[in-house]
Design a protein around this nucleic acid. Sequence first.
DNA 1: CTTGACCCTGTAGTTGCTACAGGGTGCATA
DNA 2: TATGCACCCTGTAGCAACTACAGGGTCAAG
Lengths: 133, 133
Amino acid sequence: MRIGELARATGTSVETIRYYEREGIIPAADRADNNYRDYSPEHLATLTFVRRARGLGFSMAQVRALLALSADADTPCADVDRMVQSQIEEVDRRIGDLEAMRAQLSGMLAACGGRRIGDCGVVESLANRPPAN
Amino acid sequence: MRIGELARATGTSVETIRYYEREGIIPAADRADNNYRDYSPEHLATLTFVRRARGLGFSMAQVRALLALSADADTPCADVDRMVQSQIEEVDRRIGDLEAMRAQLSGMLAACGGRRIGDCGVVESLANRPPAN
DNA sequence: CTTGACCCTGTAGTTGCTACAGGGTGCATA
DNA sequence: TATGCACCCTGTAGCAACTACAGGGTCAAG
């Protein structure tokens, strides 16, 4: 299949696919006579894997590691589980950060009591309040 | 005050402060005879504002807008409230995305049933499962 | 024979910093 | 007096993970 088809099949842009190839995260495609890239079902599977892992928040480096682990059926599950577990922790951390931000932002709206910012706490809450902890 | 003091006072790195000045998000400091930057309390207030807004997830462009609004005491509160409200929505969107990721990741761990990935669903769940919706 | 949808390479831009390299300043101590 | 040290300066390059061209080739349909 050609790069455009692969792009549509995986919800990836053509330029991102070429970028992944340059980065070596997916293997280089074969080339047809006209120099167009020609992808196999294995490429499709690899790219699907990459996109899903990226969508779960794994970095490119982590995706590389996951691909390496997944290449060998004898890889102990624990190796992958550890990466998944620490990604869950990272996600939880980010959720916590965002919830703290959300609370601060809601507090700003609550501080708004006037018609003009000169009469109202909304801007002061940014300028003067101690860092949220 | 000198740049290092300002940095400590605001929890910002010296290079970030210089970066903000280059970007025009904080006004350029006066210079002492030795060409060292010399900051006023107004600089401190502005930088505090900037850091807090950045910490709430506002982009540099949004921080610029907030600074412009906050410069005039007659700015209607509603103008700022709108930005805060849409930032809350953005944060909620991100929290939702992260929670979906978290659920997928937990599902991967649950799919793990073997000792080697060849016997266990943890990797297949990345390669074959349809996109999470 | 031209239009249009594809494909190619290569390079530069994005966001918000961070990290040098290579140099100057100014005070305290040996 | 020398020298160390913490601090400051400018300028440029790097990071992640793409995204967006510019400038060109390919190929089937009308």
